[in-house]
Design a protein around this nucleic acid. Structure first.
Lengths: 341, 341
DNA sequence: GGTATAATTTTAAACGTTTAAGCTCAAGGC
DNA sequence: GCCTTGAGCTTAAACGTTTAAAATTATACC
């Protein structure tokens, strides 16, 4: 691998001149400039990003970590998110470092390691929650990061999030327009901030429609198929006058559990029971019936998060520092054909 | 951020001594050693990986790139693969850099960039094919890489692959044991090496069972739902004596297309038509009926690929340099209940 | 006590960049 | 002709490590 010294020798100039030419800094005569450029081409020289990094005290890398899904669960956003981040980063000569984080106990230690060893210049966080220890640490360390997701309101940090409340409200309005009045919601445990936001949309829509939420309509479970399946069974056991005709589930996986439970109970999903999911996983369109779901603008989130982070490492607060994007309801047969009674 | 100089000053020694202590190289008295360690702790010092990298002429990063899936297709392996790679890498103080590669035309340029700028010490390739330009370039540049997947037989390079032929053969044997005799295969275009390997398993099993492959039983399509759907329709139009009672599809997505087409035609998948997929995507267990599929040992592949790459960057050829792992057939109701007639 | 040897520590160069500061020289003004 | 100016270029230090080689100190042996 040729170094800047080789280029300098080849062009008959000092290494400083080569550097000035390559960075378009400093005054260099056109003749010298050409000689340097020719030498660069002849030798196929590329500056070492490591050496540049040492000099500039930066790594030009952003760290991103995620919790692996339990078996039999899919991560509907990872691929798109990673790809859009990597693309946006590459446009500014940054790269994305993916690091593992299996054990939540030592999670912060892993982040600290990255920070203190200078591995990365910033982080992208996802799957944030209230009192997120990573955010607490990074804020305290004053280390640049942007989160996909919100956290404690009293913490001031840059984030991008998808408006779950608005999304669920869109789904609810769609169901209400179809004539549904008894609508259930399959939610997440109270600890989940994202789950809380989404649930807000449910309550808001019900209230606006002047409907009361009957006991049992909101069931909170973990994001497991089996839990969703059982929740649906519980709804189907309700007396006809309070039995839901539609369900909004906070994930596609949970929606699938509901669909399968309903089918197994002899109902025709889409006609007898409307179901809405969340995430619009690639699979949703191929389910029977195809599942209405809320699509998050993941590519946009990835792009935004990275451009904001680039602002941040340059020392400027991104503006706006908090961005709330709207999901889009993709209507399919799991709701479109429903006829509530 | 404290540097080695700060530690040296704090401990009252030279920076060389600090380095010797930290790397357990060179002879240092126990007393000095303790003083250095105390200083390290007191200051919270962590060596800069960039500076180390410059000195050692290495980045301790491995590059990995993948082609994003078209919309409505899922990548069943990315998450696990990335995670197992990152874990294995981290155990040896390496990290995984994910970089984007949207445009296949300039794909090699992106790899070359990474190589020449010293961004990475090696690559993990996936989705390899015959005459893969990346492999051609990396071999010529003598740059370390390990592939998940095979390529031209005359190219000698380290790879790990999942034995698709064996996998399909497992599926076929399972179907044959159930009594199926008219078995179709939904394959990939001829250009796909992986597709070819998998198809070999089909022909091998048919031959071993003494069955002739009727015209029309093997259909090659791209990995699209719609193509699979239409292929299934074509099979169902065949006269009863050659109409397949079972289908092996080369991906879960294609299997889903077949299942849905069969259902739409009034058949009960699992009873009237057995279907097998490939990849065992997380969704398979939740389909109706749950889909029998071939599970690739992705975590093992990721781990292996990285440990082999680490051997390689150390200058040793990994041994063995080519590893063929067997997939595992996960039997579910899409075949288990079939009663061929 | 002096010397050879071993143990410990330091010095200094190197890795490949950037960049502040200094040097050289031609041009222009007086 | 001398001084100033500025363009063009070089020198050298710095970034934070590692490590060969030199220097120092301690130990052992006679």
């Amino acid at each position: 691998m040729p170094t800047i010294k080789d280029v300098a020798r080849e062009a008959g100039v000092s290494i400083a001149t080569v550097s000035y030419v390559l960075n378009n800094t400093g005054a260099v005569s056109e003749a010298t400039r050409q000689r340097v450029l020719d030498a660069v081409n002849k030798l196929g020289y590329r500056p070492s990003v490591i050496a540049k990094g040492l000099q500039a005290r930066e790594s030009r890398m952003f760290g991103y970590s995620w919790h692996p899904m339990p078996p039999n669960q899919f991560n509907p956003i990872l691929e798109k998110f990673l790809h859009s981040m990597a693309e946006a980063a590459a446009r500014h000569d940054y790269h994305v470092l993916t690091f593992p984080c299996s054990d939540p106990v030592c999670e912060v230690d892993v982040y600290r390691d990255m920070v203190e060893s200078g591995r990365v210049d910033g982080f992208v966080l996802s799957n944030t929650n209230l009192n997120d220890p990573r955010i607490r640490y990074l804020l305290e360390a004053e280390f640049p990061f942007v989160a996909f997701g919100r956290s404690n309101p009293e913490w001031d940090f840059p984030w991008v999030d998808v408006d779950g409340a608005d999304g669920v409200e869109q789904a609810m309005n769609h169901l209400l327009e179809l004539g549904h009045r008894r609508i259930a919601c399959l939610a997440w445990p109270e600890e989940s901030l994202t789950g809380q936001y989404r649930l807000v949309g449910y309550y808001r829509a019900m209230e606006r429609a002047g409907l009361t939420v009957e006991p049992g309509w909101v069931i909170r479970t973990e994001n497991y198929y089996q839990d969703a399946y059982q929740a649906a069974q519980a709804w189907l056991r309700l007396p006809p006058e309070t039995r839901p005709t539609a369900v909004v589930a906070l994930t596609d996986l949970m929606a699938i559990g509901v669909m399968n439970a309903a089918s197994a109970a002899g109902l025709e999903v889409g006609r007898d029971l409307a179901v809405v999911g969340f995430d619009d996983a690639p699979i949703t369109g191929y389910l029977r019936p195809p599942l209405t779901s809320l699509r998050q603008p993941i590519a946009e989130v990835g792009e935004l998060v990275v451009t904001m982070l680039i602002d941040l490492v340059r020392g400027e607060m991104p503006s706006p520092a908090q961005v709330l994007l709207k999901p889009r309801l993709i209507v399919r047969d799991s709701t479109a054909l429903s006829k509530p009674t």
